[in-house]
């Protein structure tokens, strides 16, 4: 049998090229990391029927079914149809699998569905964003986390969405037990203090984690009706310049966040270096090249931030610069002196 396969086409179809000749791996997209049991069973069936009976859990909350024979792609795609429909992922032609793979699975922590600290429904937002941006081949990473604990590690993504609640205080229900003060200090940033038996919140320091609300025994502290978000920009891992995302917005609304993400794809269309390897570049590196101001011209188009929203004046990213030095012995604190 002649083995002539367009691997680029396979990749776009969400199949990983394996190091084992003749094999591919099917990458199952699970927006927000929540999958129904029926789809999960189908993952198992595909692994048993076309793979070797194993399934990898991916770092971005998807599945990867390894050791599939390259010529079984069409059959696997047919089997994937049920999962694609159940997870509500946008598709081109039914039965032909996933239409793109560049934009990564949107990750979400458990969020308000389960977690006492979750400030919004992370899974729902992840699924909404997935619907908005997928299919797309641009390399974009997005993650949603329910509160400032950042269990979803969103600062390692291009867009890190962190839930916030604005604590509402009713002094008439406050008995001055100071549990909010204690827990804000121990579990959060220490934004609360006591003045004359009542609580004063440092509105600049407060990160909107909701710890005060959780520990208040009287409902003197409650959550704001509005769900707010902190947006972290352009974090990444990688070889050259891994770095945490930087604060861009706080107390932002969901609509603005979605618009900014959608607008970013226009920026990518305009500035992506087609000469880059496999025409793929992390957005962060493109912004490093064009400057943030240029990026924001695109990203903030038609975005109307709410009255509470604060935007960073300037953004400077840090992180490691392995393209400049990988020297450990000459770093400031020379533990290695002891050996010399």
């Amino acid at each position: 049998m002649i083995r002539d396969y367009d691997m680029k086409d396979y990749k776009r179809n969400a199949f990983r090229q394996s190091k084992h000749r003749g094999e591919i791996a099917s990458r199952v997209r699970v927006p927000g990391g929540r999958i129904d049991a029926e789809s999960l069973m189908r993952v198992v069936e595909i692994a048993e029927k076309y793979g070797d009976g194993t399934v990898n859990l991916t770092n971005r909350q998807g599945f990867e079914i390894p050791h599939i024979r390259i010529e079984d792609r069409d059959k696997v795609n047919e089997e994937l149809q049920l999962i694609i429909e159940n997870t509500g992922v946008n598709q081109g032609e039914p039965g032909e699998g996933y239409p793109a793979s560049g934009t990564r699975n949107v990750v979400a922590c458990p969020g308000q569905d389960l977690c006492p600290f979750g400030c919004y429904d992370t899974k729902e937002l992840a699924q909404k964003i997935d619907k908005m941006i997928f299919p797309n081949n641009h390399h974009v990473k997005i993650a949603c986390t329910g509160c400032s604990n950042d269990c979803a590690h969103v600062r390692l993504n291009d867009f890190g969405i962190i839930g916030q609640t604005e604590p509402q205080y009713d002094p008439n229900r406050c008995i001055g037990c100071e549990q909010c003060v204690k827990y804000c200090s121990k579990r959060s940033v220490g934004a609360l203090s006591v003045v004359n038996g009542k609580i004063v919140r440092d509105t600049n320091k407060c990160i909107g984690c909701g710890v005060c609300v959780n520990y208040c025994p009287t409902r003197a502290w409650t959550r704001s009706k509005e769900h707010y978000f902190r947006l972290e920009l352009m974090g990444r891992t990688g070889k050259k310049n891994p770095r945490l995302g930087e604060d861009f917005l706080k107390w932002a609304d969901e609509e603005s966040i979605c618009k900014i993400i959608k607008n970013t794809y226009d920026y990518l269309d305009a500035y992506l270096d087609m000469a880059a390897v496999e025409s793929k570049e992390h957005i962060g590196y493109i912004i490093d090249r064009t400057g943030v101001e240029e990026y924001l011209k695109y990203a903030m188009k038609d975005v109307e931030l709410g009255p509470k929203c604060e935007m960073a004046g300037r953004i400077y990213w840090g992180g490691k610069r392995y393209d400049q030095t990988n020297e450990l012995r000459k770093s400031m604190f020379r533990f290695s002196d002891r050996e010399e």
């Binding site: 308000q112 839930g163 409902r219 409650t222």
Partner: peptide, 8 residues
């Protein structure tokens, strides 16, 4: 509405 300990 929405004034419980946890979100929503």
């Amino acid at each position: 509405k929405g004034q419980g300990r946890f979100t929503d």
